[in-house]
Design a protein around this nucleic acid. Structure first.
Lengths: 390, 390
DNA sequence: TTGTATGCGTTATCAA
DNA sequence: TTGATAACGCATACAA
């Protein structure tokens, strides 16, 4: 079998085709007439008994030549087929098939001034919350005939910055981003450049951007109200670091509900963590179980489900029962929450809806001259499951 | 605060700026001199007392004009700064800052013939296996100075096809893909067009593509050998549908190990599922526990960890213990496997390594004329945890 | 060291 | 209905 190796070369995209030994030139271009290919040869390169032929990817010009029409007609077939007579159209379409023509999006975009893509720069691809948001955005993009590219910043500001810069250079239609820091100037840089940007799952007080978020204070309140209703009077809040707005807000809501119930401050313990992961949840569990049974909280509210799952696992390892020894409320209601060994009570956020609305907002900003920025705040709801019902 | 709304318009990327009521034209362009902006005005649009000014995004030409140099010099500052005298260079850089110049990647790409991006089209963004593969690819891309875009096909052939077509039109440097069907002709279409493509976690027997995969037959064998060593003589294989190559291979390995151990065929039960998800795992658990205790398997080998987690949850709900009533081996060793209520024994695949090597292969195909396709097969290993140790 | 001219592939306008 | 032509923004070869 002949090796057919595509390479890239200044001036276009090329196909390199190699002959068998002995022959000088062989143009391998599956399904095409040799002469059509030969016209696109740029460079022949002798290497001993073999010869490389460098072939440009076919363009509208090549198609026009093969079909015996003008370049403008080919473009018409592509963009306004109704303006072309059926006979010539099918001749052009045949030529396209024969040459394996694919429209060059860079050229189209250069001409059109905009691309046909959205992007979502997300913090943590391993957290199902973000992939669910992405799914919602994906569907909205699909409905608008656009593609959605996902970029994983992995919680690193430098990577986030690289991605944002690249996307702006690409002139994407719009960017959704869950930023490492919503107040970082990189976001302003994007917008100064005219690329619509929507902040997802974070907000900024200055109203400079559209954003979609969930009322985390209310979420924290719902969680703790539920625990108070279930009769708990010693509760732990597990989460951190408090540089994360979500964590601060959920704790604030928790404290408000606690105060409203007339319970003493010191019976709402804060167990800080260094992140919102399963591993951190286990470590928090160890610390929690280290407290003497008399003073130990009877319930825990975790700042997200991953923490809650880690906590659950730690308890199960150490022989404690849920909710008998400790009731648990998580946050996010990811798929694994319902599927945990003890199904988790959790605060649900409308994740797909978040993504969908974010995509719609960014498209509005991209296309509607009368666009005004909106900060949408969604309402969370508590989903009660076995982890809080003995 | 004035509304500054970016819009898109044929002919370039634009910023629309709106005046306050009463004045006719206001050019809002933060940090720029008004005259520099005015030169880029294209269209003024009276709407009652307000006026829209349509402003083109700045190009090298604008920068050159503002800096008082030629367009070529600006390009040199961008691409070969050493060829420019320090004085002019700083003048040009000032102008760039002032105009908020951002290189137009479409134009650069059109000229260069290739982009600076890779893409990974993955099956299921919710499955941590794929995000870990993506992370490995991401790092390799970063090392090569490229960006990696993630595209989520969500197991749908049509969406996969849309993404592949779009990526080919974009002339990305290379595509990694875990395809819905590795033998589908869409993959051949991509390559016929000269875009390097590497198949991830699947293989194709015809050697038409590079691929990276893991020896699933060996993985199945390892799982069952482990269970046999632990003394199990009635084992269930849980997984499906068997249209998935992985499922077939893992079962094949399981059967081979079973036969090698001299155990009777009918004591290796197959419990088919409709997918590899947590929900399917629970449903399989129900069926399994429906078998009378005398004939019921004492161990289960699940085709992936999500199934195993679902199974585990089902057992725990119904009061059965793991591994006492049923030992469990999963596959993939995702993070949640170790973090499960009963830590899961699982077959680990070198996920990040898979992604890294795939990215390297696609870059080799893109840049090395002597590239030959390689089908890499990695070796899995068994990670023993509590779910198989009573 | 800097400037000029050309082409990348596409689309749209206008003339035939 | 079709064809010729001019941009879009950038990078480079070559001329000054």
């Amino acid at each position: 079998m002949r090796a057919v190796t595509p390479v890239k070369h200044p001036g276009g995209s090329f196909l390199v085709t190699r002959t068998g030994a002995g022959r000088r030139v062989a143009l391998v271009w599956s399904g095409s007439r040799t002469d059509a290919v030969r016209s696109r040869c740029r460079r022949f390169n002798d290497i001993g008994p073999e010869v490389w032929a460098v072939v440009r990817a076919s363009s509208v010009k090549d198609v026009a030549a093969l079909a015996g029409v003008s370049l403008g007609t080919v473009s018409n077939v592509l963009n306004r087929p109704d303006r072309v007579s059926p006979a010539t159209r099918s001749r052009v379409e045949d030529a396209m098939r024969e040459l394996g023509f694919v429209r060059n999006e860079s050229a189209r975009q250069l001409r059109a001034g905009h691309s046909r893509t959205l992007a979502y720069v997300l913090l943590d691809a391993r957290n199902p919350f973000f992939t669910d948001v992405a799914e919602g955005a994906e569907r909205a993009a699909e409905a608008a005939g656009l593609s959605l590219f996902l970029c994983h910043s992995d919680n690193r500001a430098s990577r986030e910055g690289d991605y944002l810069a690249h996307l702006v250079e690409q002139r994407v239609q719009g960017i959704l981003v869950t930023p490492v820091d919503p107040h970082a100037t990189v976001l302003d840089d994007v917008r100064r450049n005219g690329t619509p940007l929507v902040i997802v799952d974070r907000t900024r007080d200055d109203g400079a951007f559209c954003s979609v978020a969930v009322d985390d204070v209310l979420g924290g309140r719902l969680a703790v109200e539920h625990l108070v209703e279930r009769g708990h009077t010693r509760v732990a809040f597990i989460g951190g670091p408090d540089t994360i707005g979500q964590v601060r807000d959920r704790l604030e809501g928790a404290r408000a509900a606690w105060a409203d119930a007339g319970l003493p401050d010191d019976q709402l313990t804060v167990v800080p963590t260094d992140g919102l992961t399963v591993v951190e949840g286990r470590s928090a569990g160890e610390r929690l179980m280290g407290i003497g049974t008399r003073r130990r909280p009877t319930a825990a509210f975790c700042a997200n489900d991953l923490l809650a799952l880690g906590l659950l696992q730690q308890l199960s390892t150490s022989g404690a029962t849920v909710p008998g020894d400790l009731a648990i409320v998580g946050y996010d209601d990811i798929e694994y929450a319902a599927a945990a060994a003890v199904p988790l009570t959790s605060v649900r956020q409308p994740r797909q809806e978040l993504g969908r609305r974010a995509a719609e907002l960014v498209l509005d900003e991209a296309t509607n001259p009368d666009h005004v920025h909106e900060q949408l705040v969604f309402t969370p709801e508590l989903v009660a499951r076995r982890s809080t019902f003995s």
